[in-house]
Design a protein around this nucleic acid. Sequence first.
DNA 1: GCGCATTTTTCCAGGATTTTAAAACGCGGT
DNA 2: ACCGCGTTTTAAAATCCTGGAAAAATGCGC
Lengths: 225, 225
Amino acid sequence: MNKAEILIIDDEPQIRKLLQINLESNGYKVWQAENGLEGITMAANHPPELILLDIGLPDKSGHEVLKELRMWYGKAIIILSVLDNEDDVVQALDNGATDYLTKPFRTAELLARIRASIRRNETTELRSKDEFDDLSIDYAARVILKNNEPVKLTATEFNLLALFTRNEGRVLTHRYLLKEIWGVGYQMETQYLRVFVSALRKKIEDNANRPKHLITESGVGYRFV
Amino acid sequence: MNKAEILIIDDEPQIRKLLQINLESNGYKVWQAENGLEGITMAANHPPELILLDIGLPDKSGHEVLKELRMWYGKAIIILSVLDNEDDVVQALDNGATDYLTKPFRTAELLARIRASIRRNETTELRSKDEFDDLSIDYAARVILKNNEPVKLTATEFNLLALFTRNEGRVLTHRYLLKEIWGVGYQMETQYLRVFVSALRKKIEDNANRPKHLITESGVGYRFV
DNA sequence: GCGCATTTTTCCAGGATTTTAAAACGCGGT
DNA sequence: ACCGCGTTTTAAAATCCTGGAAAAATGCGC
């Protein structure tokens, strides 16, 4: 088998070095980033088979990085952390981490967990970019182009649109959209959706009164076409 | 969503009880087996969404059970063990275990790892669709195609049609249809059905006067063919 | 603390869907 | 051919849902 590529995102050079030696001697190709932003960029330019992510990064919390990666990166992300806090573990796993290991970790176990994660990769495939007619969306860079012109969206607007484009053609119910963007507990706040869908239509539709992308399914939800 | 089913294979009754209480209070349906053989049989007769497997079983070593299960069982298997032996972890993961937790485990973490594992199960599942002659229905996307052209249905119309297609060939009584779509208390409102069946026929039949899909069973109900 | 961008609330008009009511139809029996 | 009965169709009224505008609250960077 040819070398699987692994990206390490960790601010401690010693840890990176240690991981690099272990991984390379087991036939992996290793890339390194020393903070979250760099890691996201590298992953976007050259998506690896697996990401090892330290949760205690200097620029962004590892949880933030994890969430951003998970918007478009479908393969394995293993969290490494000095924290053995149960809340962190739960939060990371619920944000889409594949596994969570506490430092110091046992090398053979880490390698086995890496093998297990890569083995299960094949099924999931997410794109980091999408094109729809006059729209293009880059999930990693969080950039939208309409007729090749950049469109400025707020954070919530982008998240909502990304959720739609990831589910092209499907009806997404009000409950589902609210749960995904605002979290459980907001599932009754349908007025939020109206406001934000309306804002999105103004920005991405040729004619917001006659939307061709964001279609309302009365009584159910919305659909992106 | 309906309850995911989890099978516990563990010889210690206290552990099974503890797991059962935790899992059931989190909305899972729990099955139990007290040894490897029984576990394999139960999993074969009624494949669960996830298996919790103790590695220290009396009849076979848990590693054996794991290998046998993996010959045909594709979904998540989480290993629970009192052993914190690195070799056991590595062996289990390399034999196809989804995860490995050491007893005593933290409950919230176990639940999070279960959620993560079940989530991965789902992504590999196919989208539920049905095809009937000139009609195709995608339940998740809420899309109907007639001769490959999308047909616009209102929420109630779609729900009603989906109920019919899920029960192809069967006569559904007026009472049953009304209960499923409008709820108990509407079982006398046969008018509603007549109005909506008529609307559906206009949209999905070639000739609404001579329906080939939505057949009237006079005095009883309707049948989808 | 101030100013700006964004998110959360509120309100109401207009639109779409569901409900209600009534008329038209089809079919078997006489 | 006519009647009766259940079904289908139509169209109105009632209800519910959505979109727009804009004020209030919040968060964020300086």
